[in-house]
């Protein structure tokens, strides 16, 4: 069996400041990995290096492509990488407006990736968009409304539908529940869990919310100052943390 994503020695510096340093791990098909750490710990830098938004200084990000097997996405050509990010990859931004076209209807937002890979039948595109709106629990009657008329939770769900419509195999999420009301977060987490399970998705979720990773992630990586200080099964890392920083992080969470 081949890892879906193999991150090998990825480092990124900003001048003398370390973004992330020498990060390596394998992500297997169907696995959900959480990356936690406080602001500035390098988790977002790492996510952006993996998703092709930043070019790492060193290291490889090897993705098991459908056509050619494992390929280093850092050194592959930009058209190939952008094609991946429209087809087999998905990226859910913290702020839905970064991941949506706010001036385009909900249906158009969902349909864009289909059209980007060559769909040219309006009726089919619309049927798929309708189906996906239902799957993320958005009323089909809203298909022609712009996302600017949606609530924050609906926008985030629309962003997910827009990303998943092409049946990606790997989804990157940057604080997907950040900025949402707690009740809305729960609904989103439930939805994500179901989609991950039913589509066999692999996911990498960056968050500072330990409750989110406990519910969503199989595995956890803890970052501090650009370094991975601890990694393992999510519940193991949270319940029996070995590193001083992880112990501090876990003990700092307010109990409800």
């Amino acid at each position: 069996m081949t890892p879906l994503l193999s991150v090998q020695g990825v480092s990124k510096r900003y001048g003398t400041h370390i973004g992330c340093a020498d990060v390596s791990f394998d992500l297997w098909p169907g696995e959900v990995m959480g990356i936690v750490g406080e602001s500035g710990s390098g988790k977002s830098t790492l996510l952006n290096c993996m998703a092709g938004h930043l070019v790492p200084d060193t290291g490889a990000v090897v993705f098991d492509t459908r056509a050619d097997g494992p390929r280093d996405t850092v050194t592959m050509s930009e058209p190939e990488r952008r094609m991946l990010s429209r087809t087999d990859w998905a990226f859910v931004h913290q702020h839905a407006r970064d991941g949506l076209r706010m001036g385009v209807s909900a249906g158009g937002n969902v349909g864009e990736r289909l059209m980007a890979v060559g769909a040219r039948h309006y009726g089919d595109i619309r049927d798929k968009a309708t189906d996906w709106l239902a799957r993320v629990e958005i009323d089909a009657a809203r298909i022609d409304d712009r996302p600017s008329t949606f609530s924050g939770g609906m926008q985030q769900r629309l962003q997910i539908a827009r990303n998943l419509v092409t049946g990606p195999r790997l989804i990157f999420m940057d604080e997907p529940t950040g900025g949402l009301d707690v009740s809305v977060q729960a609904r989103l987490l439930d939805l994500l869990r179901g989609l991950v399970r039913d589509m066999g998705l692999s996911a990498i979720i960056v968050t500072h919310d330990l409750a989110v990773v406990r519910l969503l992630a199989d595995r956890l990586m803890v970052m501090k100052s650009g370094h991975v200080v601890e990694a393992g099964l999510t519940d193991q890392v949270l319940d029996d943390p070995q590193h001083a920083y992880t112990q501090l992080l876990v003990s700092s969470v307010l109990q409800v």
Partner: peptide, 9 residues
């Protein structure tokens, strides 16, 4: 018991 479940190391 938690060790057997892999929850504790």
């Amino acid at each position: 018991m938690r060790m057997i479940y892999g929850n504790y190391r």
